[in-house]
């Protein structure tokens, strides 16, 4: 792989994968059923692999993961949101894996710098998207309780979805087309799951921006504190 991948773009995509992988890792030992322990860990491992591939093209993967300050991370706010109940985790997966699948699908078929990474990732992400869709159907069209939980989760995370379609400099994509296809796909899945597409705003009202500009939500700082603590406690040590 050549070092021509634009650094800021690789950080944005790499941080998305790194942070979501971390959140999914928090499920270990807490999943609703054993089979799902295995499934969530598979997704987390795929994402961690993607993160390492992307970050190591920008610099030392561990320095980037463990020694950057919160404001230097370029991930979407969506992926840093706490797990919440299983419905929140699935809603986050649905929104993000649909985005990642469409994006990597397009990048893989092109000849840009990200094509090789995307070609590997798209197979993994395809499965993540399927997993999220299957669960969205079951939670949405399951019991009254699960329907309520899933609807609330979709709404709670809706306002983090607008940020996904801000063009990332260095990622050569039809961003408007991506948004249209994402909306169509998510609308279709939610419809089949008897859920209503949320109507609220899709971004926070703050001109300073969001995750791609290094502006994150409060839970992210605590997540990083936990993630980086041990590494930072032993400067220069090897593990």
């Amino acid at each position: 792989m050549t070092a021509t991948v634009p650094a800021q773009a690789a950080l944005a995509l790499g941080d998305d994968a790194l942070v979501l992988s971390h959140r999914l890792g928090e499920w270990a030992g807490h999943a609703p059923v054993l089979e799902e322990e295995v499934a969530l860990a598979n997704i987390a491992l795929d994402l961690l692999g993607q993160a390492r591939l992307l970050l190591s093209q920008v610099g030392d993967e561990d320095e980037l993961a463990y020694l950057r300050e919160e404001r230097a991370f370029r991930n979407l706010q969506l992926v840093e949101q706490p797990n919440g109940d299983f419905a929140h985790t699935i809603a986050r997966q649905l929104y993000f894996s649909t985005y990642q699948d469409l994006m990597y699908g397009e990048l893989a078929s092109g000849d840009g710098e990200f094509a090789p990474v995307a070609a590997k990732a798209v197979k993994e992400v395809d499965y993540h998207r399927d997993h999220a869709e299957q669960w969205t159907l079951r939670l949405g069209d399951g019991t009254e309780e699960s329907h309520g939980r899933m609807q609330r989760a979709c709404e709670a995370l809706w306002r983090f979805t607008g940020e996904m379609f801000q063009p990332v400099p260095g990622v050569d994509l039809d961003w408007a087309g991506l948004e249209a296809r994402w909306t169509a796909s998510v609308t279709s899945v939610l419809g089949r799951a008897t859920l209503t597409v949320p109507e609220g705003p899709r971004t926070g009202a703050w001109a300073a921006g969001a995750g791609r500009q290094g502006l994150h939500t409060e839970p992210f700082g605590r997540m990083l504190a936990e993630m980086q603590h041990l590494h930072r406690s032993h400067p220069g040590a090897s593990w």
Binding site: L18, H22, G25, E26, A28, G29, L34, E37, V38, A41, N42, A44, L45, L48, G49, A51, R52, L55, E61, D62, A65, Y66, E226, M227, H229, L230, H231, H234, A237, W239
Partner: peptide, 29 residues
């Protein structure tokens, strides 16, 4: 799974983190 999962979120390198996640997953399996 629990005593080891206790360290997944604090694993000090990404390599170690991947190994530990895979191991805890194996235990579920």
């Amino acid at each position: 799974m629990q005593p080891e999962a206790n360290w997944i979120t604090r694993a000090p390198s990404l390599r170690r983190k991947a190994i530990l996640m895979a191991k805890v997953q194996d235990e579920a399996g």
